[in-house]
Design a protein around this nucleic acid. Sequence first.
DNA 1: TATGAATGAGTCTTCATTCAT
DNA 2: GATGAATGAAGACTCATTCAT
Lengths: 189, 189, 189, 189
Amino acid sequence: MSVAARRKRDPEGRRQAIVVAAAELVTEVGVEAITHRLVAARADVPLGATTQYFDTLDDLRDAALQLLVAHVDQQMTATRETLAVQGATAQSVATLIHAALVDATSMKADRAVVTAAVHDPRLRAMARRWSGQIIDMLTPAHGIERATAAAVFIDGLLWHKQLNDEPVPLHIIETALAGIFGETRTPAD
Amino acid sequence: MSVAARRKRDPEGRRQAIVVAAAELVTEVGVEAITHRLVAARADVPLGATTQYFDTLDDLRDAALQLLVAHVDQQMTATRETLAVQGATAQSVATLIHAALVDATSMKADRAVVTAAVHDPRLRAMARRWSGQIIDMLTPAHGIERATAAAVFIDGLLWHKQLNDEPVPLHIIETALAGIFGETRTPAD
Amino acid sequence: MSVAARRKRDPEGRRQAIVVAAAELVTEVGVEAITHRLVAARADVPLGATTQYFDTLDDLRDAALQLLVAHVDQQMTATRETLAVQGATAQSVATLIHAALVDATSMKADRAVVTAAVHDPRLRAMARRWSGQIIDMLTPAHGIERATAAAVFIDGLLWHKQLNDEPVPLHIIETALAGIFGETRTPAD
Amino acid sequence: MSVAARRKRDPEGRRQAIVVAAAELVTEVGVEAITHRLVAARADVPLGATTQYFDTLDDLRDAALQLLVAHVDQQMTATRETLAVQGATAQSVATLIHAALVDATSMKADRAVVTAAVHDPRLRAMARRWSGQIIDMLTPAHGIERATAAAVFIDGLLWHKQLNDEPVPLHIIETALAGIFGETRTPAD
DNA sequence: TATGAATGAGTCTTCATTCAT
DNA sequence: GATGAATGAAGACTCATTCAT
């Protein structure tokens, strides 16, 4: 009798809800583990809705990853702007990164994509692009080699946060970046 | 009967073959993607053998991961011994890491476990233990903070290699580690 | 509102467009293969239109078959009239049939219904009716037995065309019909 | 509790049972209409069995059609041998065809394949091959043109039987074939 | 009335797991 | 003990049909 009442019509909202649910699940259980059922349950829509809006599960996965990518790209842009203003000193970079580490949502978005990239060649380019962007941001001030090293270190920080509850403390990040950048640190630092 | 000559009896050997095949597959396609059939084909054993030796697929997965863990542990021990002899200078650590990056097998074993750890809490402890061990090795010479930073950097190097074809060049590693360790580097370095 | 200019109101026209599209598809891909979506796409009408005009897909299928039936019935009437004028000689019948074989549209309509009749008892009566009509046309001139044989032969010709690219040559048809009718053929024929 | 007891092991028998069930269904409801479920029910095996023995439904369909093809080929061979002994006279051919029309199983096998050929190009060749074989059998005695006409007529007979309960009476077949062959029939016939 | 979004039933397919041989 | 057949529980996907707008 009481069949679940048909929901109000809202294509855009529903599509969005599905993608968001899928993106969340990607960060939580990984790309491999998402299923139509899982997404439908999380988005609280009937199973059929997930296939109505996305022709294949792969399409849905891609849309979810794209959402995460957009998130990270945005973050990246903000970072670039901040660095442009503050200068890419160990201190400013460390502060930015540390702030990013504390913002779980962004962090997870980023790592989810990079994790997925491990077994998906198409995403690999994306992961490398971000590394490249960080290097580009830091190269003017520090040269490409130190910039590369710093990017690797930053990547390590993100992974560390992904696998540990507590992020690396700010002052450790700062000191390490200063070392990588070759900054002469006065005791006052 | 005259059925295609049944393999020689060697339960331990067969079990081993299955685990090795499963471990290879974990590094190649990820934990999520392994199936009984895939492992059986790779190990060149009949399907039934995979369920004979392991009650569930999860058990088999665990055994495969354990094998990878053992591999990495062994690597870690070797590293510790080398460092004990050579001293944990930027140069010796850089050389060791760079060598490890070039050794695809070890690398993949390590990253496979860590990748799996992203979505498997039980493996997270393992991944952290390795970080901890590296920190422990470096702490006597550099203090826990610099050791922590170095461990993060090294982790970044491993991930970098996982997502890029070329490892980070040795001299960049060395310079960065020197900076992280706070070593005073002469221009001649 | 300014939604993409809604089509002009023309319910009958639209209904017709849908049925025609469905009939075309029946001849092309078979009754089993038609779907609302396929028909809507072919008729270039929105999906909803196909269900608005036909309560169920079966109703739509039936309407499509009916259209094909009407087509064939009309053809049959024309044939009857021609034969009434020309007389049902081997030559005139052969010429008519051969012309029909070359007219792909009519042919396909006919065979589509008969093919569908193989697995649909309701259509079987229709297919038999046509056979009966052909027999009726030929009986006055040739008796019911030769008329029956000729109808069978003609049916064979239609199927032959359905499964082969080239129709049976006119002179073979004519000779065969002459033989079936028991006409005395002079060598000059 | 009382879960359906697992059946005895008999791979060959089971595979056979599935193909036979599928072939039956093809003759009854058509190639398009068969589903795993339908076949499983008819063969009285669990759903999974149908996919265990055939990778895809298409494979199963093909196997079923192949079985029907084999049936018909066998029939064709028998016919060829009989004609070789008796000579391809109207009388002997008519008797053979009439007998075939009465044997429902063979008839259905034949028509099922030919019906399927209407919408499956791959089967078309098969259907044409049979026509060709009949023509080949009759050509030595009657020339290719009369043989072709006879083959068309015979095809018409088979379709007639498929759509009607009663076959065309023997004497009509015989008379028609005699006419097609151009045999001079004496009243004594 | 016209449209296309919403829903779920049903289809193919894969595969873990059980168990006869 | 070794093998692979047997079974059913999911999972992806399609689409008829309903119904809000």
